[in-house]
Computed example of a mutant assay.
Amino acid sequence: MRYDVVFHVDEDAAHLDAALTNIRNYYDALPQERFTAVLLVNGPAIKLMGADGEHAKALAEVAALGLTVRVCRNALRHFSLAPEWLCPVCEIVPAGVVELVARQAEGYAYIKP
């Protein structure tokens, strides 16, 4: 069975907190499995991804587990946020919605807390 997964957050801090909990639980539940996990952040949730933000430490911790954190360039532009403002673990993708479609086409499960 494949366990590749994309977690999608596009709203507020409560949704990001729920996603981070889901991600930790996912890794804890599958210690012997090899899989790829992605957190895709777009929309207003992009404002939670700052290097000095309250979620920076938690994002670094889940990235250390192997999670890839991808953020939407369109959301950055929409909210006038510079790429340099982001947490260092963030990888910018051109469009969050396209990233979601691509991962689902590759067989990733989709989870939106």
Rank of each mutant, 00 (worst) to 15 (best):
L67E: 00
M1F: 02
Q104N: 08
D10V: 02
A58V: 10
Y26W: 11
E11V: 10
V101M: 10
L65W: 00
I23K: 00
D10F: 05
T36F: 12
A19I: 05
N22D: 12
P94A: 11
H8Q: 14
V5Y: 00
Q32S: 10
E84R: 15
L81Y: 06
Y110K: 07
H15D: 09
R70D: 01
Y108A: 07
E99A: 15
V9F: 02
A82G: 08
A13W: 06
E61Q: 15
V6H: 01
D52T: 13
A63V: 05
N74E: 12
Q104Y: 07
N42E: 09
Y27L: 08
W85G: 09
G107W: 08
R73F: 06
L59R: 11
F7G: 01
I92F: 04
Y3Q: 14
P31N: 01
M1K: 05
A102C: 11
D12P: 04
D4R: 03
A45H: 06
T68A: 07
A64H: 02
R2S: 12
E106Q: 15
F79C: 06
D12W: 06
A75C: 03
L76D: 13
L30S: 03
D52C: 11
L65V: 13
R73N: 15
L67A: 01
F79S: 11
A29K: 02
A19E: 05
V41M: 06
L48P: 03
L20E: 06
E54I: 10
Y27Q: 02
A109F: 05
A51L: 12
